[in-house]
Amino acid sequence: MSKCEQDMPTEQKVKFYQTGTFTVGNRLLDEEFRTVQATQERSNSIDSGHRACQGCGQALGARYALDAAMRATDNHIIAANATGCLEVFTTPYPETAWSIPWIHSLFGNAAAVVSGIAARLKAEGDTQTRVVAQGGDGGTTDIGLGCLSGMFDRNDDVLYICYDNGGYMNTGVQRSSATPGGARTATTMPVGEHPGSSFNTGKFLPSIAMAHEIPYVATASVHDLHDLERKVEKAMSFRGSRYIHINVPCPLGWGSEPALTIKLARMGVECGLVPLFEAESGELTASTKIRYQIPVEDYLKLQRRFSHVLKPANSDELEAIRALAQKNIRRFNLR
């Protein structure tokens, strides 16, 4: 059974939604089963006039996630934001692009700030209003990990969303602990014996979140909106800490064409480097299968940050990236 079939209610199954099943909308689908983004009434949590680069994956991922959370809560969402691109491009004085109550405090404290908001709601007995924290990969996997781990430990009623673009893009593309091995950044240049970012043992935050045994952990990608929205809505059906890790291509940091943002997100998933899965209380419960598997090279060659990896002299790096894709496919049961 294909993925779309699983997601469709029984009476909508099999025969009737071939035309653009994976598109944002589908005129043949019942309204209630279309994505939030397909609706004219969507909340546009981040609205026009923001200053994200052309083709910003994060601007898209954030609107997708927040709008889905808004629908799931009947528009009762408060969001906190770590310092980073998303914060900078949405709220330069005197203009904010957010249409929801939103706070930015610091780089490393979004999880704690949002826990504070949740604590106030708890003290008030307000069970309707829900909170979402957002950070980039640096703000989440590096500087913000302490606060985030604390939030997981307390099982505060928070959805934390990490928009992973694989580096500190706002400060000019430096390496974070989420930068993929081999990738060029301003602090891991393609020079020396092992060009690009080191292949460390890894700091894959979804696994770290799972180790906290919080109610729900999921990974998502901006190329598959149905999958992403379903995960956000599912996350909102739980109480306690929830974590969603969204892969968001960054044309600036990746050296890719702005128009290819969604294509790259898709290719990342289809080559196995970006596994999409869900876990509940620490246990893997579902994987989104790869639809058309592609070689990692097809994905890498569209990004200048990997251009050196494709040179014959750096075949070790390419081999290591291939191996990671294979490991993901095995480990997360992606086929």
């Binding site: 906190a80 706070i103 704690a112 504070g116 908001i117 106030r120």
Partner: peptide, 9 residues
């Protein structure tokens, strides 16, 4: 940070 969130709320 927790105080900041709570107070802002």
């Amino acid at each position: 940070s927790f105080c900041i969130g709570a107070s802002a709320a």
